[in-house]
Design a protein around this nucleic acid. Sequence first.
DNA 1: ATAAATGCTCTAGCGACTATAGGTTCAAGG
DNA 2: CCTTGAACCTATAGTCGCTAGAGCATTTAT
Lengths: 153, 153
Amino acid sequence: MALIWGMTIEEYTIGQLAKLAHCKVQTIRYYEQKGLLDEPVRTEGGQRRYYEAALVRLKFIRHGREMGFSLDDIGELLQLSALEGHDCKQVDAIASAHLVRVDSRLKRLQSLKVELTRMINSCQHGEVGDCRIIEVLQNHDHCGHEHGEIEKI
Amino acid sequence: MALIWGMTIEEYTIGQLAKLAHCKVQTIRYYEQKGLLDEPVRTEGGQRRYYEAALVRLKFIRHGREMGFSLDDIGELLQLSALEGHDCKQVDAIASAHLVRVDSRLKRLQSLKVELTRMINSCQHGEVGDCRIIEVLQNHDHCGHEHGEIEKI
DNA sequence: ATAAATGCTCTAGCGACTATAGGTTCAAGG
DNA sequence: CCTTGAACCTATAGTCGCTAGAGCATTTAT
């Protein structure tokens, strides 16, 4: 607890904060370094101490990450959320753009799953020389899609 | 062309190989460094020259990558495919494990898409203070899933 | 002979952490 | 007050699969 203006205020160590936000201690220091979390107050000895606001912010970040937003996106969302009275067009734009990315990755994974399943099912479990899986990898004609683009899966 | 045992054999520069396999020159050097491609012969001046076999191998790697296999997996698949008479159980195991990964990522993306869509659709396009998107990110109760695990999407 | 294109090595950067080394501080128990 | 051990600190390197750049050298075509 810290005593400020005659009131006691809850204070957390970095380890407590990590536990409460379900992340690692290093992750918190990483977010601070990236400018997503403010530099907290320090003890005489140099250890970080956090107030409730930092926990709220950290949870926001973690929840954003769980939803697949990049740290850059989350940084922008944090800034936008702090602008009182500001309309949420930009927030919507960031979320929508993210949805588009998620959707295209989803489609890619769906067709990949079909392709992999077909390949594995057609394997007769004989010798590698006759293995359909090896054959598909060797001979590009066996599969539908184009060369060149390797997207993240 | 190279003259070997009195025959002429097709020879490629690294640039030609890159074009034929639809990848970048640096990528080929990277694969060599990682041990996926053999060190090729060199000219007097030290430039790499490749024969057909390297192109075949490189295409195998690229096709594996297009299907989302890791370079480690591809390295194993390459080794296994060279063992004549060997049965393809291990090949199948690698491919199946990959399918499992693809499938779990797919499921994750599907639920993420639902969550994002719901969130975006419930936004009333007012001020950020009332924005449903910000609210969802701030207040974890709004969404179903647990804390802690942030998988790659 | 010269110039353009391509090649070479080495190094650093991406994103979002994670892990380690080697040291310091804090809180509790005796 | 002193010791112990857990938790903290900074700094650095590693993950994966490339990609980009600097600063040269070689090759090829004219």
